Amino acid sequence: MMICKHFLIEPTKEQEEKLFYTLYLCRKLYNYSLDQRIKHYKEYGKGLTYEEQQNMLPKYKKEHPEYKTVQSQILQDVLRRLDRAYKNFFDKRAKYPKFKDRYHYTSITLPQCEAKRNFGKEGYVYIKNIGHIKIKAHRNFDPTKVKTINIKYHAGKWYINLSIEVEEEKEKTVIRKKAIGIDKGINSIAATSDGELYSNPRWLQKSEKKLKKAQRQLSRKKKGSKNREKQKKRLAKLHEKVANQRRDYLHKISYNIVKHNDIICVEDLQVKNMMKNHKLAKSIANAGWGMLDAFLEYKAEREGKIFIKVNPAYTSQRCSGCGRIVEKDLSVRVHKCECGLEIDRDVNAAINVLYEGLRQLGITA
């Protein structure tokens, strides 16, 4: 299985210039390739494939010698990115691909086939034609297991995402010490089967006034002006602050849960589908359910503990005491059953998640 680790990197001024130039060339190739697909479709009635565009890449590089400074694997990933955009469009997961400006093309990827990667220096990553870039590696990782590198520029800072291969155990021997079920919600980001409720700080809502003000100020700036560039950075920093607050809080929750439990059972929610509900989309995105699952999963893997997702069907409606279905809408926050059980509805759901997780593992609750 693959896990992703996210770090801040600190390129020198010279390295930063090279990274910006690489992003410029990648964006130029992306837009050229998109234009090529559009023209080909208009002329021949069918689009180009990734393989066809990849075969055209050597000729394009010959005509544009500046691309000699960019690794072929990075350029191939540009074409893959465009191909994914088309597939998402045809699968009705996204709109038709758009031409990118420098604010919407901010990352480069070195895929698995990149062979010149050198992690010989601790806390550094090596990229051909750019050199050794310092990583602020606050978590350990095995350099030999790194399969993909993604470098991203955001809000005036550079980040690196490392996709790392982790061997999955074929059989997990379970010595049951402590198991927990987790129900994810909007009022409480997480409710546990132990009765603990992790409140939702609603970072986005708290910063919404500042974000709207910054957005209005941006819209009044003249396009292409230095003041507009400065305001874009201010707005990006505000968004980054919200994202960092959410990430920090979810790290603390996941650390606490994994530290005190050996088996972690969560709902397998289809977050993307739930986001289609426009009334709840902002609240769901702000809660960071997917991020919480990702943090729990990699921390459990790192600590040798078990993380399992279960079907969320009827977890909120089923009584954790007697198993009877007690129908209730979202406005009802307390579960009451004829058997006499009266409990917070999210805690009730978390207990049901725990029971289902243990059942899947073949453990008697």
Rank of each mutant, 00 (worst) to 15 (best):
L280N: 08
G288K: 02
H251L: 06
K233P: 05
Q231W: 02
L235K: 14
K252F: 00
A236Y: 04
K241G: 01
I257T: 04
D268P: 08
K232A: 00
N244F: 06
K259R: 14
A236M: 05
D248V: 07
Q245A: 01
K230Y: 08
A285W: 00
S254F: 03
K241M: 05
K232P: 06
K237Q: 13
A287S: 14
I263C: 05
V242R: 14
K237N: 14
V242S: 10
C265N: 10
V271C: 07
N256T: 12
L280G: 03
I284V: 09
K237I: 07
Q270E: 10
D268C: 03
N286P: 13
K233W: 00
Q245M: 08
V271K: 15
R228I: 05
D248Q: 10
I263A: 02
A285I: 00
V258I: 12
R246L: 01
A285E: 00
K252W: 02
E267M: 13
Q270A: 07
H278S: 06
L280P: 08
K279L: 03
L250G: 14
E229F: 11
N227L: 13
H278P: 10
Q231H: 03
Y255G: 01
S254G: 07
I263D: 03
R234Q: 11
R247A: 09
I257A: 03
N256M: 08
K272N: 14
M274N: 11
A243L: 04
Q231I: 00
L235M: 06
V258F: 12
N286L: 05
D268K: 13
I257D: 01
H278Y: 07
K279Q: 06
V271E: 08
G288E: 02
L280T: 04
Q245K: 12
K241A: 03
A281V: 10
N256Y: 02
K241Q: 09
K232E: 01
H239C: 06
L280I: 01
L250T: 11
I284L: 09
I263N: 07
E229L: 15
A287P: 15
N244K: 14
I263M: 06
I284Y: 02
K237A: 05
Y249L: 07
